Simulated assay, not measured.
Amino acid sequence: MKIWKLVSGILSIIFFALVAMQSCAVGVANTLEDSGEVSSSAGILVAVLMLAGGIVSIATRGSEKRGSNIALLVLFGLAALLGFSNYGSYSDLTIWSGWCLINAVLAVVALALGSKQA
C-alpha cells in the first residue's frame, strides 16, 4: 500500500493543477453564458480536496495507522461525491471524480487490510 499512496499522492497533486485550470475555464464560460451552473465551483472544491488528499497520501505513506486511511477516505470520498453530483456542463469533472472514487475505494481496502493485520 506504500506504493499506492505515493503514486496516488503524486498523481493527485498533478491532477489538482489540471482540474483547477479546467474549472477556471469552465467558470469563465459559465459566466459569459450566464448559465447559472455551479460545475466550476464544484470543480475547484474537487481540486482542493484532491490536493489535500494527495498531500495526506504522501505524508502518511509509511504509516499503517487507521486514521490516515480514514482521512483519505473522507477527502477523496467527499471529492467524488461533490464531483458526481455537480458536474453539469463540465463533463470532465466525472473523470476526476472517478479518480477520487478509485482512491477512496483503495483507502477502504487499505483500511480493511490494516485491520486484518493488526
Rank of each mutant, 00 (worst) to 15 (best):
S89W: 02
L11G: 09
F15N: 12
I70K: 10
L45R: 11
E64H: 07
S40N: 10
W4P: 03
L106T: 08
K65G: 05
W99H: 03
L11T: 10
A52N: 04
L18G: 08
A118E: 10
V7N: 14
G83Y: 00
K65H: 04
F16H: 03
Q22S: 06
A110E: 09
G114L: 11
F15E: 00
W4T: 07
L6S: 10
I44G: 04
V74A: 15
L111Q: 12
L72N: 15
A79T: 03
L93D: 03
A112N: 12
T60Y: 06
S115W: 13
Q22C: 05
I55T: 01
Q22V: 02
I14E: 08
S91C: 00
V38H: 13
I58E: 02
A42S: 07
A47F: 05
L73E: 07
E37R: 14
S12P: 15
N103P: 04
S12F: 15
V7R: 15
S91G: 03
V46M: 08
D92Q: 01
I95P: 00
S97N: 02
A25R: 09
A29R: 15
W4S: 10
W4D: 08
S85A: 06
D34Y: 12
F76D: 05
I95K: 00
C100I: 01
L111H: 14
S57D: 03
G53A: 14
S57M: 08
L101D: 00
L6W: 11
M50K: 10
A79S: 03
A29P: 05
C24H: 11
S68N: 09
A59S: 09
L78Y: 01
A59W: 04
V108L: 13
L73M: 12
G88A: 05
K2A: 09
G53R: 01
G114E: 08
I10R: 04
L78H: 01
I44T: 12
R66Y: 11
N86Y: 06
T31Q: 12
C100S: 06
V56E: 04
S68A: 14
A110Y: 10
G114R: 12
S115V: 15
